[in-house]
């Protein structure tokens, strides 16, 4: 079983970080994983994306060109990658920032107002973790326990308060 996840949004939304967490979550479950960012001259406000592969087999090409799971955190990302998503794939949309619905009928679409929920939690930068939590719930890709455990590898121990906030955001998305 191989899952190819594409996470895309504006630079600054924590798209690369969410991907890194996800890769660690796969690692936590002893899966084969890879994480590949788009890299370029973009910075905050530009577009950012990363491809994560979680597989039972060794990962061949790390390039995610046909995602089985798409997380779109802004409209340009949905516009660009909706058509690339495989038939039967799953698309997760931050509905606070994206007004339109997924047009494809051959994929499962999930909507979560991640940015609004993050603001309500008082951690406006953690919409990425909220949408990640929702994705984990709906796909069963990894367990919430693995995801929580993985977070400890990604957020340094020196920043315990951030760790707590990240886990809370993850749970909020998971339980939404």
């Amino acid at each position: 079983m191989t899952n190819e996840i594409l996470i895309a949004g504006f630079g600054g939304q924590g798209v690369l970080f969410a991907g890194k967490c996800l890769a660690y979550e796969g690692l936590e479950e002893n899966k084969q994983v890879s994480w590949l960012p788009s890299y370029g001259p973009e910075m905050r406000g530009g577009t950012a994306s990363c491809g994560v592969i979680i597989s039972d087999e060794p990962v061949g090409s790390p390039i995610v060109s046909k995602p089985t799971i798409l997380i779109a955190m802004n409209l340009p990302s949905l516009d660009r990658y909706e058509k690339d998503t495989v038939s039967g794939g799953k698309i997760f949309v931050d509905s606070s920032l994206i007004a339109r619905e997924v047009e494809r009928k051959d994929v499962d679409a999930f909507y979560i107002p991640a940015t609004r929920l993050a603001n309500e939690l008082g951690t406006p930068t953690l919409a990425n973790m909220i949408i990640l939590g929702k994705m984990i719930k709906e796909t069963g890709l990894v367990t919430l326990e693995s995801a929580t455990e993985a977070m400890k590898h990604v957020v340094s121990a020196k920043r315990a308060s951030l760790l707590e906030a990240n886990i809370k955001a993850l749970q909020t998305g998971y339980n939404y």
């Binding site: 690692l27 084969q32 994983v33 890879s34 994480w35 960012p37 890299y39 790390p62 390039i63």
Partner: peptide
Amino acid sequence: DGTLGQMMEP
């Protein structure tokens, strides 16, 4: 190459 430099793996 740039891919191998930028990508993360275990």
